[in-house]
């Protein structure tokens, strides 16, 4: 895994891509969880700075109301998502193959990360989906129950991508 990792990130392009994708993923996690507000602001032709304010405020809300552990886990999922997607891009370019269904697990981890990112409201939407009243707030760890497995899934996904790259014989090891 270490060698495959080095092969991918030896190229600075993939480091830049990872940083950009990680930042984008964090932005998307916050955006996804404040979607209703974005829709309202779009309808009012609000200035772009207000959208940025909603994102920064959303991040501050997660930190203040849900705790540093959940906030750190969301950042971890964002970074791992950036690394995983960069590795998938590398794999696609090198092998012309998506790398079987195993890589889909990575997207499962990203989905979990988005799902566990608390929004700026105490949500009842899980109640609608799973019949759980109180949303993430009823979980003792306030959403870490979802984000921690997401981190595990993303790490596993990176392992399988690395293994696939090594097996494809394209890695210089």
């Amino acid at each position: 895994m270490k060698n495959a990792f080095q092969s991918v990130f030896r190229n600075p392009k993939y480091i830049v891509a990872s940083v950009l994708i990680s930042s984008l993923m964090f932005f998307i996690f916050i955006l996804a969880n404040n979607f209703a507000t974005f829709v309202t602001l779009l309808g009012l032709n609000s200035p772009p700075k207000l959208f940025i304010e909603v994102v920064t405020n959303g991040a501050a809300n997660i930190l203040a109301a849900s705790g540093i552990a959940l906030f750190a886990s969301i950042i971890a999922v964002s970074i791992l998502s950036g690394l995983t997607i960069s590795m998938i891009i590398y794999q696609l370019r090198m092998t012309r193959s998506f790398g079987c269904k195993r890589n889909l697990a990575g997207f499962g981890g990203i989905f979990g990360g988005a799902f566990s990112s608390a929004c700026s409201a105490c949500s009842t939407t899980l109640a609608s989906i799973f019949g759980v009243a109180g949303g993430l707030s009823i979980f003792p760890l306030k959403g870490l129950e979802v984000s921690l497995p997401s981190i595990g899934i993303l790490v596993a996904s990176m392992y399988f991508i690395s293994k696939g790259l090594v097996e494809s014989g394209r890695c210089k090891i």
Partner: peptide
């Protein structure tokens, strides 16, 4: 995909 997530989590999807 994220729009779908947003619809669910952001609460604008007509799930009520």
């Amino acid at each position: 995909m994220f729009l779908v997530i947003g619809y669910f989590i952001g609460g604008t999807f007509p799930v009520s």
